[in-house]
Each structure stands twice: as C-alpha cells, then as structure tokens.
Amino acid sequence: MSTSSRPTVRRRPLAAAGTAAALALTLAACGSSNNDSSSMPGMDHGVKSSASAKASPSMGDMPGMDHMAAGNGLSDTKDGYRLTGEGATLAAGKAAAYRFTVTGPDGKPVTDFAVDQTERMHFYAIRSDLTGFQHIHPTMANDGTWRANLSSLASGSWRMFTSFTPDSGADKGTAFVLSRTVTVPGSETKTALPAAAKSAEVDGYTVTVKGEPMAGMAHPMAVTVTKGGKPVTDLQPYLDTYAHLTAFHEGDTAFAHLHPTTEVDGGHGGPDLSFNAELPTSGNWRLFLQFQTGGKLHTAALTLKVG
C-alpha cells in the first residue's frame, strides 16, 4: 500500500487554555508498510541501544503539535474504534509475535491509515513496573491484521499500546491511542522505579533534562545530549525529529508522547532539543528518549517527577 500521498495528521484542540503548541501526549498515530522495527529488546530500567532505523520523509505535522486529544491510551475503545488482540497471554523469555486488529465504527477492520512520523502505526509494549520498554513499527496484512514482533518478555502484566490515525471516514486525520493488557506467565519479579533524576547515560552519551513540568499545564522543557563532556551535534533525523520521547506514568502506565520543536536540518542535530511538555497528572513518569547517531538508535531512560 502506497503512503507517499498521505495527508497531514489532524490534531484535536488541546484542552489546556492558552496553549498554541502543546506536547504530544498519548501515543503517536501511524504505522508501517514494511518491517522496520525499533524495539528495545528487554529494555529494563537501565538503558540499552537498539538496531538502526530508517529516517524517510513523512507527511507529519509541525514539530511540537500534540496527540493529547487521543486520551491516555488506557482503553481498548474510543469513538467507535476498537483494538482487538490475538490472545491474552504471551510466552515468557522468548521473542513473540503479537497480532492485532483495529476495527472502525462500522465494525470492519481499518486498513487505511495516515502517516505520522514516517509510519502508519506505532506500537509500544511496557511492563506494569515500567520496565521492558519496546517501540515497534508493525506490519499490516491486506485484511487489516497487524503483526508486532516483540523481543523477549519477562513474566508479568504488560500493556500493548497502538497509536494510529485513520485516513478515511468521519475521523480521518484524528489521532487515536488504544491499548490492551497481556499476561506473560511465570514468577514475576518487580523492579523498583529508579529515583527521579535529571540525567541518564546510554552508549557513552549523557542525556540531561531541563525544566520543571507541572501536571496539566503546558511547559517548556529541554534535553541536552553530550558525550565525554562535549556537546553532541551529529544527531540524525529519526522519525522526522531529532529525538523520540515517550513517557509512562507510574501506577497506571498512562502514556504520553512528547515531540521536540527543534527544526530538523539534516544530520546536524543537538546538543539542545526543545519540547513543549504537558503531562496530565502528577507523580513519577518514566521517560524513554530515542535518538540516532551514525545510523544507530540509542535509548536513554530516566524518571521525572511532575508536581
């Protein structure tokens, strides 16, 4: 299915008054017509690198616009759209394929999706203790069945998020985020959430967050990337931005997605990336920042406390 002529994804108005450009909250809408995956195998509360990913052009909207209208992603239904998954359990300790379908208000599988951040579907997996983060771009069969190839999963309760934008019908161009829980049988060992911190390290890089977001309020936030104490200026575009930032709320795993407002200028990103952040509830949020250098994708994780 060709995606070269997909229109710009439309966003619903942001609830916070006076906010012209708010953060992207709740899963990015889109998908993929190929098997380009950016999962983080077994991502724990530490940080690991992942395989490289392509950075092809998309019809995505202006950096910094939000997905907040899609909700917090904690339901499998919204406005007539429903996420159905194949089975409620997945085997522990080995790679697995999670198959799912999105049906529309007419009850039929949706097969027409708009492109956002170079993809037609973004898929996220996170365990209840906010470990095991995986971000995948699944593939879709002609009948509307999607396949997300998950890396090894630890025992416990997992939430599978799907982020998409219909490209036809009454809700054409509107971002949605739906999710379902999956159980991975076995003895579950929960990992305590690391304390709130302003920086994290991954693959020799140091990521530092600046700013104090307040719950339910749009607030500027910045991320600085350094290596060996020196500013990094060779960030490459990844999903049409210089950084892909997702956040999960401690306790309920509510999802938030923040986009940088920094303009993309080839492979010359960094060291500073600006965000418009609006996290809906107070408490601890686990942030996963993905950025690319030299064709390699890096994922840094840190805990941010929101007042």
Rank of each mutant, 00 (worst) to 15 (best):
R127N: 10
K190L: 07
T299C: 15
R99E: 03
K48N: 13
Q134Y: 05
L150Y: 03
T303N: 04
L90M: 11
P271H: 03
T191R: 04
D36R: 15
L273I: 00
S4V: 07
S49Y: 05
G270W: 02
L302P: 09
T261K: 09
P105Q: 06
A24G: 12
T26P: 02
T226V: 04
P213G: 01
K296E: 14
D112L: 03
L153S: 14
A222E: 05
K48L: 15
T3C: 06
R159N: 01
A154H: 03
A300S: 15
A195V: 13
A55D: 13
T206L: 00
G266F: 02
T261P: 06
P57H: 11
A22L: 07
P260T: 11
L90H: 03
F113N: 04
F248A: 02
D106M: 07
G251C: 01
P271I: 05
M121L: 08
T262C: 05
A53V: 13
D66F: 11
S274T: 14
G18F: 10
H249G: 04
A154R: 10
S199F: 00
T281L: 15
A53Y: 12
G31Q: 06
T191L: 04
T26W: 03
P13N: 10
S50G: 14
K172Y: 04
A192M: 13
G295S: 04
H298S: 15
T224D: 11
H268W: 13
G295E: 15
H268F: 05
T101Y: 10
A256F: 00
Y238P: 06
F291V: 01
K190E: 03
G156V: 09
V202S: 00
A15V: 11
R147N: 12
G60W: 04
Y81V: 04
L178M: 01
P271M: 02
T118M: 05
G216M: 00
L153A: 09
R127T: 06
K305W: 07
G64I: 06
L23F: 04
R10T: 12
L235N: 03
D79W: 01
S168Q: 15
V182I: 14
A170T: 10
H259W: 09
A170F: 03
D234L: 03
M214V: 14
G270R: 08
T3A: 06
F176H: 05
A154Y: 09
K78V: 01
L27V: 10
G60E: 11
T233S: 12
D66S: 14
K227W: 01
V102H: 07
S157Q: 13
D112T: 08
D44S: 06
G294A: 02
A21G: 10
D171V: 12
H122F: 08
A17V: 12
V110W: 11
F161V: 01
L27T: 12
G283Y: 08
M214W: 12
A22H: 11
G295N: 11
W285K: 11
K190C: 02
P260M: 08
G71A: 00
T89Y: 06
A192V: 14
P213K: 00
T233A: 13
